[in-house]
Amino acid sequence: MERHKMQRFFDEELKALNQKILKMALLTQESIHKSIDALKERNAELAGKVITDDAQIDFLENSIDDDVFNMIALHQPVASDLRFLMTALKVNADLERIADLAVDIAQRVVELVGQPLLKPLIDIPKLSAVAQKMIKDVIDAYINKDVALARQVCLSDTEADKLRDLIQNKLINDYMAKDPKSATRAVPLLLIARYLERICDHATNIAEDVIYMVEAKVVKHHHEKLKGEEGARE
């Protein structure tokens, strides 16, 4: 009976932990969205809000870490339960880093405020949309232990890389190479594209951890395995 009560308590703590991680993911997505809106509007106030709101995300990160360590100490979980908690720590760290990258974007926006945009913003918002979808999907995969969705997130990283390369090539070849004076407006955009691509890398890290959590299978640096598995199911 006592063991049953402890298991029920553990399950309730897991649900509460999932809710905190979901909140963390929503806050990071919001930070990305606001930072890109600030870029499109060249809005220093909105960019500043992204920077100041990061303190809330840092506080939540510490709270999640404390919860996980307390659960490990109290329940001494093994096998799949332990993998789940260790994955929660990694997911938490990746989400916090994603939020930091949104702050980096906001800081570049502040540098651009007051200057006319070098070119219409088309590809950067596309890359931002890819990043936000990857985050949403990978958190859904984590909460629902959905390995198929986690695999899709891993494979989506290729699209992010292509968009980053497209943005980089346009800015360097079409602008900086032709007019070196454009560098002050081009470099912040280059960095923003890089930050967004790194956000996608962190979403991929989470997806790889979800696959390990559920299947105890390491796919890091071996995404060709995922392509084979996707093809086998079609």
Results as ranks from 00 to 15, higher is better:
Lys5Val: 09
Lys5Tyr: 05
Gln7Thr: 13
Arg8Trp: 01
Phe10Ser: 08
Glu12Asp: 14
Leu14Cys: 13
Ala16Ser: 14
Ala16Gly: 09
Leu17Trp: 05
Asn18Val: 03
Gln19Gly: 13
Gln19Val: 04
Leu22Phe: 04
Leu26Lys: 09
Glu30Thr: 11
Ser35Ala: 15
Ala38Met: 04
Ala38Cys: 07
Ala38Asp: 07
Glu41Thr: 05
Glu45Val: 14
Leu46Trp: 05
Ala47Ile: 00
Lys49Met: 14
Lys49Gly: 12
Val50Gln: 08
Val50Arg: 06
Ile51Leu: 01
Ile51Trp: 03
Asp53Gln: 13
Asp53Arg: 10
Ala55Lys: 13
Ile57Asn: 10
Ser63Trp: 00
Ser63His: 10
Ile64Gln: 00
Ile64Met: 01
Asp65Gly: 04
Asp66Ala: 14
Val68Ile: 15
Phe69Trp: 05
Phe69Arg: 11
Asn70Met: 12
Met71Trp: 10
Ile72Ala: 11
His75Val: 07
His75Ser: 13
Gln76Val: 12
Gln76Phe: 08
Ser80Arg: 15
Ser80Glu: 15
Leu82Asn: 08
Phe84Trp: 11
Leu85Trp: 08
Thr87Gly: 06
Ala88His: 03
Asn92Thr: 09
Asp94Tyr: 10
Leu95Gln: 08
Leu95Tyr: 05
Ala102Thr: 07
Glu111Asp: 12
Gln115Trp: 03
Gln115Tyr: 13
Pro116Gly: 02
Leu118Ile: 13
Leu121Ser: 11
Leu121Ala: 10
Ile122Ser: 09
Ile122Tyr: 06
Asp123Trp: 02
Lys126Gly: 02
Lys126Glu: 14
Leu127Trp: 07
Lys133Glu: 15
Met134Trp: 03
Ile139Asn: 04
Asp140Trp: 00
Ala141Cys: 04
Tyr142Glu: 05
Lys145Cys: 10
Lys145Met: 13
Asp146Trp: 04
Val147Ile: 01
Ala148Met: 06
Leu149Asn: 02
Leu149Gln: 09
Arg151Phe: 09
Gln152Arg: 10
Gln152Trp: 01
Glu159Ile: 05
Ala160Asp: 11
Arg164Lys: 14
Leu166Trp: 05
Leu166Cys: 05
Ile167Val: 14
Lys170Ile: 08
Ile172Met: 09
Ile172Asn: 01
Asn173Gln: 07
Asn173Phe: 03
Asp174Trp: 02
Tyr175Met: 07
Met176Ser: 07
Met176Thr: 12
Lys178Pro: 02
Pro180Gln: 10
Pro180Thr: 10
Arg185Pro: 00
Ala186Trp: 03
Val187Phe: 11
Pro188Asp: 09
Pro188Met: 05
Leu189Val: 00
Leu189Ala: 00
Leu190Arg: 01
Ala193Ile: 01
Tyr195Gln: 02
Leu196Ser: 08
Glu197Lys: 10
Ile199Ala: 04
Ala203Gly: 07
Thr204Pro: 00
Ala207Gln: 09
Asp209Met: 11
Val210Tyr: 02
Val210Ser: 06
Tyr212Ile: 06
Tyr212Cys: 05
Met213Trp: 00
Met213Gln: 02
Met213Glu: 01
Val214Leu: 12
Lys217Trp: 11
Val218Cys: 03
Lys220Ile: 07
His222Cys: 08
Glu224Tyr: 14
Lys225Met: 15
Leu226Ala: 07
Leu226Ile: 15
Lys227Ser: 12
Lys227Met: 11
Gly231Pro: 00
Gly231Gln: 15
Arg233Ser: 13
Arg233Phe: 05
